[in-house]
Computed example of a mutant assay.
Amino acid sequence: MSEARVALVTGGASGIGAAVVTALSGRGFTVGCLDLNADGAENTIAVDVSDAEAVAEGVARLRAQLGPISAVVTCAGYYEMAPIAEISADAWRRMLRVHLGGLVNVARATLPDLIESRGSLVAVASELAVGGGEYDAHYAAAKGAIIGAVRSLAAEVADRGVRINCVAPGPTDTPLLAPDSPWRADDYLQTLPLRRLTLPPEVARCVEYLTCDATFSVGDVVNVNSGAVI
């Protein structure tokens, strides 16, 4: 990576994304964000990552403001639970557009920079992509598709010096989990070896590691889940 390093984080306004912004800033990156909730935050552009044209425009604006991008982290997403019989066709499509489509749109817009800088992209998936979950079919499917895309894209661009990897967090203590979420219930937490939710800074440390230190990692999935999947 170049000396003047610029990172792009989607979903950087809150939760895991905000923790990633803090971690990468601490490693010397200037961080720009694409997020639905920009709210005037510095170097943050309001973008729906499922909109390929809007992503391309947002990436171009950040590149013009901050410089060429040498690291990308795709955190933008949302979570909902529903029995499969109650998941509408629109809900299936939206889940895939935001999670898988968001990754693909950002990768397409940033790969020229990453190839030039021999940089890194880290996608945020979920332990549900690995282990599945009751009432999580569309979310788990979308996150599983991210893992498949990451491994395929990693093979496609590794010979050009670009590292593509993935982190798969377990239930994490962010606003995406409502106070009454079953993932916060004590009877669930007691099934975890660590007996607690994953914390956003823990996920961010893994993202930081893959971005800055793991120069040998290509197409890897790092599970950060308090032992939910061992």
Rank of each mutant, 00 (worst) to 15 (best):
E3K: 10
A7K: 00
A7M: 10
L8R: 00
I16K: 05
T30M: 04
G32R: 00
G32A: 12
C33Q: 11
C33M: 13
L36R: 14
N37K: 15
N37S: 15
N37D: 11
N37F: 14
S50N: 06
D51W: 06
A54Y: 06
A54E: 02
R63P: 13
Q65D: 15
Y78K: 03
A82D: 14
A85G: 13
V98M: 03
G102C: 07
V104T: 08
V104P: 01
V104K: 02
R108V: 14
A109C: 07
R118H: 10
V122P: 12
V124A: 01
V124H: 03
Y139V: 05
Y139C: 09
Y139A: 03
I146R: 02
S152N: 15
S152L: 10
L153H: 05
E156H: 11
G161A: 06
V162F: 10
R163Q: 05
G170V: 06
T174V: 13
D180W: 03
A185F: 02
T191S: 09
P193G: 08
L197R: 07
P201D: 00
V203Y: 02
V207F: 03
E208F: 07
L210H: 02
N223Y: 11
N223I: 14
N225H: 05
A228L: 14
V229W: 01
V229C: 13
